[in-house]
Design a protein around this nucleic acid. Sequence first.
RNA 1: GGCGGCGUAGCCAAGUGGCUAAGGCGGAGGUCUGCAAAACCUCUAUUCAGCGGUUCGAAUCCGCUCGCCGCCUCCA
Length: 478
Amino acid sequence: MLKLYNSLTRMKEVFEPLGPPFVGMYVCGPTVYDEPHLGHAKSYISFDIIVRFLRAAGYRVRYVQNITDVGHLLDNEAGEDRILKKARLERLEPVEVAQKYENSYFRSMDRLNNLRPDISCRATGHIPEMLEMVQALIEKGYAYEEDGNVYFDVRKFAGYGKLSGRTLDELREGVRNEPAEGKRYFADFALWKKADAAHLMRWRSVWGMGFPGWHLECSVMAAKYLGESIDIHGGGLDNQFPHHECEIAQSEAASGKPFVKYWIHNNMVTVEGQKMSKSLGNFVTLGTLFERFTPMTVRFFVLQGHYRSPQDFSDQALEAAGKGFGKLARTISDLREKISRVPAEGKDVPEGPWGEYRERFFAFMEDDFNTAGAITVLFDLAKRIHSVLDTVPKTDLIQAERLFSFLSEDILGFRFQDVERYSSGSLESDLIALCIELRRECREQKLWTLADRIREGLMTMGISLEDGKDGTRWRKKT
RNA sequence: GGCGGCGUAGCCAAGUGGCUAAGGCGGAGGUCUGCAAAACCUCUAUUCAGCGGUUCGAAUCCGCUCGCCGCCUCCA
């Protein structure tokens, strides 16, 4: 029985999808105006785990993620948005900026081994649908037009504030900026903004040339691909208000139906104890991070925390995570060597001698995706496997490999080939075999210094040697 | 200022009313080994920021204090 924390009710609830076995899940994607960073890693790994686990639990998930490639205003008076600003700075078309960073985003997500969404949809590809929703909201009396801008009238929507737990009065106290011209009420938000010719990304509408408000794309694309009521909507905690609050208002006002059954928000990251921001100069892109830590180390690190807890990225913590991950990687490597078998696709879930571990793993995952707890089961299993590696029947080891692979690769999304051997018969493996043979002869003649030089030399090339009873084995250093 | 969250060993971190407070990293000792590495075994928080309260019983609930963080119409 899967329980998950619903931000809407602020409680853990039993997961009961609207139309099992199907699950519709929408996750707010990136605004593609810059390189992906640490926050994206934590966020999208967290949601990847949710998709993977739901599938492992038997659900048929449709995972939709948007790409925000259109105009959201910066604070400045020029009315410039992030993408347009970047386009000006890099001397690119806005579409080129969006494409460039979308590519970069997916490259990084691929390296983290996050599954691609089933539908990746761009805001700019859904302008007609957005215009329809704005029109519908005006016709139903939830929105009004003022000089080419269209605003949502939050006082008409009774539930405004239910997600973030704020009342309009509380919101008013927190107001720091003067409301924009033309708004009837301070909390009203833009559905459509007019744009002059200097604004490169603009579209024709019955209210004149303009561009859509930020919140609109998610309401429209979620409805288009998942229906008016969806099971799960995910995103960063920083988007809970106002973005998701506004999505609810638009969608529910337009459809008259509940928009989302379960809201899931992941928490934020800090860097060496500080908020990550460009102004503090501690902004870490994934490209930079991957120069120092492997994507799997980052994935392991993220999963050792909980998605609803904040997480601090520090060198010390990442290094520790890398070592821990290496231990898991060696386990499956040892296991596969022992059973002379590469992992099969579509593996079964054994009920046999390892069933207890599977149950414990699932119990953690079913409790609001407690990946940290699930990983402890993996370590227990690894320890058990190593203890019995030379004593139990091969059939048991085959089952162990299937289970370990199912839990760690399929569900947690780890990828272990980094520590596996070069394919046999390759130049590398032949050369390494030669070194090992030469070292063996040195050792027979007790030429320890020379033998150690060979071992250390290989070590500096990232190859570690391990002497065992059955001879020397080697593997790529993790 | 308003709203919300967090504070668990040297580091990371799970646990949110009741057996001996998971696990990883690090550290100590041991088995194995020419030495290593890997693996395995043992040990490493009388205690969960502090103080007070509720309870037969609290890291877990309540109050206050201290510290840190997020949101308040850019942000995963």
